[in-house]
Amino acid sequence: MADPVPSGGGRGPVSGAIYDLGYRPYDGPRNGLGAIAWALFVEGFRNAFGLGRSGRSKVLPFLLLGINLLPVVIIVGVLVFIHLDELPLGYAAYASRTQVLLSIFVAAQAPVLFSRDLRHGTIALYLARPLPSTAYAVARWASLLAATLVFLLTPILALYLGAVLGELDFGEQTAAALKAALLAVLLATGLTGISGLIASVSVRRGFAVVATIAVLLLGNGVVTAVQGISEEQSRPRIGEVAGLFSPYSLYRGAMGALTDERVLTPPTGGGLQAAYFGVMVALALVSLGALLVRYRRLAGR
């Protein structure tokens, strides 16, 4: 610390010449909790795509984003050149078809937002700052939710633009795209909560990734098998109830109730259809609540 120039006079007005490199106190404005939480949200959102981090960490999210958009490009191309009168793949069905990509994305990026601070001890620096632990958790959750929504909504928007440019019926397309967007929000909140919770209890990134993919895809696999068998055996009620137990089958069920897409054992009857939406909302709220409890505990340690 060989500072060649003598330091200034501390907190008072710095006396001395222009070359005096002494410490200058900060007298400017300071933000409140809302602005701090917003800054944390924006930084987390950028980090989820590897922005503001090393070059290597940008590869996976953008690769997945690119692959996820590839079918859209093909569909829109076909639509424009062959002049189809409807989209070969519906807006809402798109997320269902690309669920493996989506699962890898949330499984890989949730640890960026939730495990990293725990693993490297950075959480202590956040907790020693004005934001309460619960606000920290909500900001992190919101960052992951926003990143997941970018992943889910970009193809819908691209398909919609393609459909409008391809001169399909405007009102019909708008209604279908909006329904798909609503379903995407419901799906994203659930995925965010589940993957965030797993990442926040697992300090090791690899474990969080594997566990999240297992919960999302294996859970869906089991439910899909049950639904397939129950339809085969003409006892669809079993499959309809089984669909309540995995985020992707919930999404398919809700899609079946809301749109004309054909899915396995769509929920029939107003009660069960409402249950699908209710469970999706409850899943989002419960997982967010569990995250808050988790961070409150961390803060009080």
């Binding site: 933000n31 800054a39 490297h120 001890g121 950075t122 620096l125 956040y126 004005p130």
Partner: peptide
């Protein structure tokens, strides 16, 4: 204890934590 993420530069890190303490960007 350790509290520094290894894949972030000190410059970016201190800017971010300054904002977390309420400083404008």
């Amino acid at each position: 204890h350790d509290c520094l993420p290894p894949d972030v530069s000190a410059s970016d890190f201190v800017v971010h934590l300054g904002m977390m303490s309420g400083l404008p960007r």
